[in-house]
Amino acid sequence: MAEKITSLQNPRVKQLVKLRERRERDEAGLFLVEGYREVRRALDKKIPFAELYFSSDWFLGENEPALIAEAQAAGAQIFELSKEAFGKVAYRERPDGLLAVAPQWKNTLEDLALKPQPFLLVCESIEKPGNLGTILRSADAAGCDGVILCDAVTDIFNPNVVRASTGVLFSVPVVVSDSATVHAWLKAKGIRTAATTPHTTNLYTQTDLRGSLAIVMGSEQYGLSKFWMEGADVLVRIPMAGQADSLNVAMATIITLFEAVRQRG
Rank of each mutant, 00 (worst) to 15 (best):
A2P: 13
E3G: 11
K4G: 09
I5H: 04
S7H: 01
S7A: 14
N10Y: 07
N10H: 12
R12A: 10
L16W: 07
R23Q: 13
E24V: 07
E24P: 04
A28Q: 14
L32T: 03
G35M: 00
R37F: 14
E38R: 10
V39C: 11
A42S: 07
I47S: 01
F49E: 00
F49W: 04
A50V: 13
L52D: 01
Y53M: 03
F54R: 07
S55D: 05
G61F: 10
N63I: 13
E64F: 08
A66S: 10
L67D: 06
A71R: 09
A74K: 15
A76C: 07
Q77F: 15
K83H: 12
F86C: 05
K88H: 13
K88D: 09
Y91T: 11
R92S: 15
G97L: 05
L99Y: 03
L99Q: 01
V101S: 02
Q104D: 03
N107T: 13
T108S: 13
L109G: 07
E110R: 12
D111K: 12
Q117F: 11
F119W: 02
V122I: 13
E124Y: 06
I126M: 03
P129F: 05
N131G: 09
N131S: 09
L132H: 02
L132Y: 00
T134Q: 08
T134C: 07
T134K: 08
I135R: 01
L136W: 07
L136R: 06
R137C: 04
S138K: 05
D140F: 11
D140H: 12
A141I: 03
A142M: 03
C144A: 12
I148V: 09
L149F: 05
L149P: 03
C150L: 15
D151I: 04
A152K: 02
V153W: 14
T154V: 10
R163M: 04
R163N: 03
A164D: 02
T166N: 12
T166M: 11
G167E: 00
V174E: 04
S177G: 10
A180P: 10
V182Y: 05
V182M: 06
A184Q: 15
W185R: 06
L186R: 03
A188P: 05
K189E: 07
I191F: 04
R192E: 08
A195Y: 04
T196H: 00
P198E: 06
H199F: 11
H199G: 05
T200C: 01
T201D: 12
N202Y: 09
L203F: 10
L203V: 08
Y204A: 10
T205S: 13
Q206R: 10
L209P: 05
L213T: 02
V216C: 06
M217C: 05
Y222V: 10
K226A: 14
K226Q: 13
F227Q: 13
M229V: 14
E230G: 09
G231W: 11
D233M: 08
V234I: 14
L235C: 09
I238C: 00
M240D: 04
A241W: 15
G242W: 06
G242Y: 07
Q243H: 12
Q243A: 15
A250W: 08
I254H: 14
L257G: 00
L257A: 03
F258S: 08
V261E: 02
R262Y: 08
R262S: 08
Q263S: 01
